[in-house]
């Protein structure tokens, strides 16, 4: 497992909002160690029996939280992120969609300067099955096991995790890095953590059209990752110049195509799955034959 386990103490920023409250409940039901909620002006209240604080600073001081999951509205996210960093939070999980990318760039720079980590924004969060679910992933489709997953997508991750679980292959940790063009953790950082994680035997990397993060990750894998990696790219039939749902999913000026990413996978020893269903089959083969293809 990487980044989070059952001991990870989590504070929820925006815990009393509609979405924050609903997911606080679901995370608690899953067994996540939620120690505090933060909503300015609601300090002293409780949400699903979790104490609510006015500031992250107070929440951290009282509970020792090290991770914050952020559900605040898009234009308040930068401030919430700065607040978490300043309070000493070392892992920020930013679920919010629709954050102005210039705000994300500022937050990502501050996160880097502090030596902290940011997952997201516009992401489903992270899960170490059986231990900790931080975000909005549906816990029931994940199961503990040897597959590490890193993905730009939410529901597509669920689709592939479901197929893996149903085929008997559980997951060590699944990280949804988010669908925005500017974001925190990238593939390389997560791949590197999986490579050094004893619980991870096989890595699944789910990408999509737009940008060149998959190409760079493929080159990184060739140099730095010995464990088998299975790659899948969504948007193989997407027309150029059109934004396909995610802010970052666009082929522009001939760049960011699925072909380019699949080529890079093949050239660097990443095993390619052409459909979500094929991922589970490739994982089964990789576990039987862990040597690089």
């Amino acid at each position: 497992m990487i980044l989070v386990d059952k001991h990870t103490k989590v504070v929820v920023q925006g815990a009393t909002g509609k979405m924050g409250a609903a997911h606080t409940k679901r995370m608690l039901d899953y067994g996540t160690n939620i120690v505090a909620g933060v909503t300015p002006g609601k300090g002293g209240e409780k949400i699903h029996n979790v104490p609510v604080f006015d500031t992250v600073m107070e929440a951290v001081k009282t509970t020792g939280a090290t991770c914050s999951v952020i559900f605040v509205p898009p234009y308040l996210a930068l401030d919430a992120g700065y607040e978490a960093l300043d309070a000493g939070i070392s892992l920020l999980v930013l679920i919010t969609e629709g954050i102005p990318p210039q705000d994300t760039a500022k937050l990502a720079a501050a996160v880097k300067a502090k030596g902290a980590k940011l997952i997201g924004p516009n992401c489903p969060g992270i899960i170490t099955p059986g231990q900790s679910l931080i975000g909005i992933l549906p816990g029931s489709i994940f199961k503990s096991g040897p597959v590490g997953m890193v993905s730009k997508s939410g529901t597509l991750t669920y689709e592939i995790a479901l197929a893996l679980t149903e085929s008997g292959y559980g997951q060590s940790t699944c990280v949804g890095t988010g669908g925005d063009p500017i974001k925190g953790l990238d593939y390389q950082e997560v791949l590197s953590m999986f490579e050094h994680d004893p619980a991870t035997e096989v890595i699944v990397m789910i990408g999509e059209i737009g940008g060149n993060a998959e190409e760079e990750a493929a080159a990184f894998i060739k140099k730095n990752v010995k464990k088998p990696v299975i790659g899948y790219i969504a948007g193989q039939t997407a027309p150029p110049g059109k934004r396909m749902g995610h802010a970052g999913a666009i082929i522009s000026g001939g760049k960011g195509t699925a072909e380019s990413k699949l080529e890079a996978f093949k050239a660097n020893g990443v095993r390619v799955a052409m459909t979500p269903g094929e991922v589970a089959k490739q994982v089964a083969e990789a576990i039987k034959q862990p040597a690089k293809a």
């Binding site: 730009k152 597509l156 689709e159 969504a234």
Partner: peptide, 13 residues
């Protein structure tokens, strides 16, 4: 579909 990645994957399939 719901979600960009899943919609793209469905379209590809």
């Amino acid at each position: 579909c719901n979600g960009a990645g899943l919609t793209m994957a469905t379209m590809d399939m």
